[in-house]
Amino acid sequence: MAERVPSDHSSVSTVRAKIVRSGGTTRPCLRLPSDLSLSGGDIVRLSLDGETYHAPVVEDAEGLLVRGAYDNKRLARNPGESENRLVEWAQSSGRGPGSSVEVDELEPGFFYGVRVPGKRVVYDVPTKPNDSLASIAEKLEDN
């Protein structure tokens, strides 16, 4: 069962990030600060308004970036196949390029929450999958 953790809990680290445009794209992306426990190529779980999505982390000349959030890990690897929930969230929350957001690190390298600054959120933090089981599942997905 998922653990419920509020954004203002002492175990949650919060950093400021920005909504930006990246490269030739006109859709909003999330520019992540370097002090998060992430690297380019990671796929993390990302909570937006209480819904959890899968988000690939990429690296460009300016640092780490999330270009989209998707309904499952397979769609995160093939972003053209589904709706980009990060774009939907940015539009519905009034966050455009240049806007600040807060990123809550709940499980480093695995689960993060994005919220409008000053807004309190209670997250349903999923249980991190066993690494060996996750690697078996990924191999099956690839076949």
Score class of each variant (00 low, 15 high):
M1R: 00
A2T: 00
A2W: 01
V5K: 03
S7A: 13
H9S: 15
S13C: 05
V15T: 03
A17V: 01
K18D: 08
S22C: 10
G23E: 02
G23P: 06
P28V: 01
C29F: 01
L30E: 08
L30C: 09
L30V: 07
L30Y: 08
R31G: 00
G41R: 02
D42F: 05
I43P: 10
V44G: 07
R45S: 11
D49G: 13
G50D: 07
G50L: 06
T52V: 13
Y53W: 15
H54F: 14
A55L: 08
V57D: 09
V58H: 05
E62V: 01
G63L: 08
G63Q: 03
N72S: 08
A76Q: 02
G80T: 05
E81H: 10
E81P: 02
E83Y: 11
E83A: 15
N84Q: 10
E88K: 14
E88F: 10
Q91S: 15
Q91I: 12
S93W: 04
R95Q: 15
G96D: 05
E102D: 15
E105Y: 03
E105C: 14
E107R: 13
P108M: 10
F110I: 00
F111N: 03
V114T: 06
Y123I: 01
D124E: 15
P129K: 06
N130G: 02
A134H: 11
A137Q: 15
E138D: 15
E138A: 13
L140G: 00
E141S: 14
